[in-house]
């Protein structure tokens, strides 16, 4: 459940905040979000990655279908990528890694904070 929650919250965060903030600010907020939700490391990595990756890919597909612009095609040609499908994929993959590492860092940070009670009550 927490996995889906973080995925959805990440995607929402990107959709709402990213228009006003650069990607690195989104990464910081995403780390905080992941720390707050509290997934395990692996879950956070994939949930954060999927959330941001899907959001970025979704946004790029959305913009391109609504505008009907040939720019994605032109950019792919310029970058030597063949067709624009590759460009959607690359945008998604880049979003995935940015989201995944941010969420992972957030999740591991939460673990650090949790350490104190562990030391008091555990061994």
């Amino acid at each position: 459940m927490k996995f889906i929650l973080l995925t959805v919250l990440t995607a929402l965060l990107v959709l709402i905040v990213n228009p006003f903030l650069p990607y690195w600010a989104v990464m910081i907020l995403l780390a905080i979000l992941a720390a707050a939700v509290g997934n395990k490391a692996g879950g956070a990595f994939f949930a954060g990655g999927l959330g941001m990756g899907l959001a970025w890919m979704g946004q790029s597909v959305y913009i391109s279908s609504v505008t009907g612009s040939q720019l994605p095609e032109k950019m792919s040609e310029l970058m030597g990528l063949g067709d624009e499908i590759t460009l959607f994929a690359i945008t998604g993959v880049l979003g995935f890694f940015l989201g995944a590492f941010s969420a992972l860092a957030g999740s591991l940070f939460r673990k650090l904070l949790k350490r104190k009670p562990d030391n008091i009550y555990g061994r």
């Binding site: 990607y23 690195w24 790029s60 612009s69 950019m75 880049l94 940015l98």
Partner: peptide, 30 residues
């Protein structure tokens, strides 16, 4: 990673600012 995607590699422009759908080239489709 965040720094790497913010810098150019040779002739390749910084990837994240370019591909970010909210600020990058996608916005120029409008």
């Amino acid at each position: 990673l965040a720094i790497a995607v913010s810098r150019p590699f040779g002739a390749v422009p910084p990837l994240a600012p370019l591909l970010d759908p909210n600020h990058g080239f996608w916005q120029n489709s409008i």
